[in-house]
Design a protein around this nucleic acid. Structure first.
Lengths: 150, 150
DNA sequence: TAAATCCGTACCGAAAAGGTTCTATTTTGG
DNA sequence: CCAAAATAGAACCTTTTCGGTACGGATTTA
């Protein structure tokens, strides 16, 4: 029902852990699992996706772990969600434009509207950074301006 | 992956059929199935939800069917989607506020941000009417103003 | 060289989505 | 007044996706 998946939620939760630790904070999977209250395998799975997307950098071997690849003010929710659960689009036709076709009778005259809606959603997610997520009261006034009643 | 369900898509498709037919246009389920290319049982299931939400009115018996309860310019995508797949909210905690609790360790400092995001999504969907869906080129300039880059 | 850690993939159970069917109930028309 | 056409509502099944776990391999450090 138009929900974020739990894993995307976990991704955001984990990223905020890094953000709270500040620049250079490095955590292993087991560290993160303890801090977040999530199971280690689930953390494992999720940080891999975040690292693959370039939001985290990894170090292998003893004393290895993950850390933010950029400052918390330079990473947005849009990036985190996309990293974990793929492109953000309410309708399928917006994702692989023209590739498959809707299979329905008429050519879709509503595609323009969907483009606008998807764009609005993506942009409101792209307007919120990890820094704002951990300091909502500081972030929200600026954000309210950037994301007005639409 | 943050997709609309197919049934919600069907709901929108069906509602645009009514909108194209203009005020007072009445269709039976089998009519709609033919026009839309969807299976009759699926149409059946979907229009029931739309009727229950008050977006369509129904007439039983021979020559019965469904019709729009209001003009196409007074029905928004937000209403159609909510009718078919329930309240629009990306995160669960926004729906039944405080009822269940996240179950996670700290109280969620990000709830404010989610409220803003959900609101932005709902409002952009509420800003698009059925009339605009069937006349995208007419509707979009006004809509671009109502739903700016957010 | 052993331990810690990331990497990649494959797998399984549970939940949700997608779709069908069946039995009322209501209305019209002959 | 009865048969046909239509909605109302619920139950059911199948398929897909989600949520979570497990395992073998590669890499770094001590």
């Amino acid at each position: 029902m138009i929900r974020l998946t739990k894993q995307a939620d976990y991704g955001i939760l984990l990223m905020t852990q890094f953000a709270k630790a500040g620049k250079g904070g490095m955590f292993s999977v087991s560290d993160l699992a303890q801090r977040s209250g999530l199971s280690a395998p689930m953390v494992n799975k999720t940080v891999k996706l975040l690292a693959k997307a370039g939001l985290l950098t990894s170090s292998r071997g003893v004393n290895g772990g993950y850390q933010l690849s950029r400052g918390a003010s330079a990473i947005t929710l849009e990036e985190v969600i996309t990293a974990v659960e793929g492109p953000i689009a309410l309708t399928e036709c917006q994702e692989h434009a023209g590739a498959s076709g809707c299979g329905l009778h008429e050519s879709c005259p509503t595609r323009i509207n969907w483009g606008i809606i998807n764009h609005a959603l993506r942009d409101s997610l792209a307007g919120i950074t990890l820094l704002q997520m951990i300091h909502p009261l500081l972030g929200s006034p600026r954000m309210r301006k950037a994301v007005p009643a639409v």
